[in-house]
Amino acid sequence: MTNSEKNRLKDKAFQVFGVFCTFIGLVVLAIFLIDILIEGFTRIDWEFLTNLPSRRASRAGILTAWVGTFWILILTSVIAFPLGISAGVYLEEYSKKNRLNSFLEVNIANLAGVPSIIYGLLGLEIFARVMGLGGSLLAGALTLSLLVLPIIIVTTREAIKAVPRSIRDASYALGASKWQTTWNQVLPASFGGILTGIILALSRAVGEAAPLIVIGALAYVPFVPTSPTDEFTVLPIQIFNWTSRPQADFLVNAAAAIIILLLITFILNGIAVYLRNKWQNKVKW
């Protein structure tokens, strides 16, 4: 065999390995989804969605968990969106190149890399203890808001960056102020991208369990939360709790709850992908 034949053979071999690697992740994903569906799908019925938790696996439901999850999503949105979008707008539209602002940028990149459980410790000390919110929905939502803030800031900046300079010039030349230009031109033009970032942030928040456990969210909450100061649980914590039990019946419950959680996650991500594509195709400057 000549050298060049050898090289071609190696090249071919790597190509096969590349296909194999690309598919291994997807195959694992598929096995996993099928396994969860087989195990949990038949467990999902109206009762499972509307029952309170119980010590008996067959009677336990996820009502408190999904209601808690939706509360957390809404509260986190209310707190994190205005803050994150404002910060993104400031850094992209207003800030000049100076030391404070380059420090801000490094700082936000750093925050994005802080493990979620550390945010839990922050929330435990500041929100749960110092502010006296305990293991309430509000404390949980505040903690998750800080966690997703960097995601919102970064995607807001990306979206704003994509708005062409010429649009701003046109607005300024007509006598518009900075804020008028930002509000009337830049934000509407970057709306799709900002929305995508917001939904990705929510999809991150919906799957978090660790920081909420640390601030004191409980696994067993026998009532449906009705106000932001109520104690709560969320789907990921409920799944964690059921997975940690030795009885096989609870694992079935966990699988069923995972199906619901994945459904929410995939829907959120699907919306984000849809919006991104729609927005990219909409305006060509």
Binding site: Y94, S95, L104, L111
Partner: peptide
Amino acid sequence: LLRLSAVITIFITAAI
């Protein structure tokens, strides 16, 4: 207000 939102991120790091 916009600047404040951005500067809050520094407080978060400081608080951590």
